[in-house]
């Protein structure tokens, strides 16, 4: 799971403070293992260094935690590339996929697309396993079947999630901190620059 990409995705929906990012991240994606403050600022520092985010403003009163961060065009491209890239099929990858789906929804991208991409990848592996299974011996068959059933469970979850995208979008809409990007959102700093992408979401 990439904390950096998640931060970028969260920032794409609206500029946030460092503290705000940590709280949102913890609540939405990792309730059991909250991020350490050190990790938050290290990550933001690395993003700043790479030009993926900029400091958008500083609240009066000073202190590093009062800095507000905003995403750059390079950052947006990075998020796009990350979302579009399938995860390597492996057990327990749901948390990554879940994060991707939520972020896709938050940033007005097509979550279905992500799932399709992932399904293709899963099926590619499953086909390979199936081929190995049909030509292999019993041990091969058992091993392949084990993997196949797990992959299938993943894919089932994917399908279910795809079917639930509307529900998910609706639920996100009720949370102000995770409100999906929308043309009417007052929090967007530069709506005009983002309009083209929103159109194909």
């Amino acid at each position: 799971m990439s904390v950096a990409h998640t931060f970028l995705g969260l920032l794409e929906s609206q500029p946030r403070h460092g503290y705000d990012l940590k709280r949102t991240y913890d609540e939405a994606f990792s309730p059991e293992r909250p991020l350490a403050y050190g990790q938050v600022y290290a990550t933001l520092a690395r993003l700043l260094k790479n030009g993926l985010v900029v400091v958008d403003g500083v609240e009066p009163g000073g202190g590093p935690e009062r800095k507000r961060y905003a995403i750059t065009e390079a950052g947006i491209a990075d998020v796009q590339a990350w979302l579009a890239q399938p995860e390597r099929p492996e057990p327990y990858l749901q948390s990554v996929l879940y994060t991707k789906v939520v972020l896709a929804l938050l940033t007005g991208r097509s979550a279905a697309e992500i799932l399709d991409v992932q399904r293709t990848e899963h099926l590619r592996l499953m086909r390979e396993l199936t081929r190995r299974k049909t030509s292999g011996d019993l041990t091969d068959q058992l091993i392949c079947d084990h993997a196949l059933f797990h992959l299938e469970a993943d894919l089932r979850w994917l399908e279910l999630t795809a079917d639930r995208l509307d529900d998910l979008r609706a639920r996100l809409a009720t949370r102000t901190d995770l409100r999906p990007a929308s043309p009417h959102s007052a929090t967007r700093d530069d709506p005009a620059a983002r309009a083209p992408r929103r159109a194909n979401s």
Partner: peptide
């Protein structure tokens, strides 16, 4: 089929959603 394990016997797959085929 809606079963991935069955679909895995195929050479490739397309997905139909809301009456539209997604053929990567």
């Amino acid at each position: 089929t809606h079963e991935p394990r069955v679909a895995a016997y195929a050479d490739r797959e397309v997905v139909v959603r809301d009456g539209v085929v997604h053929d990567r």
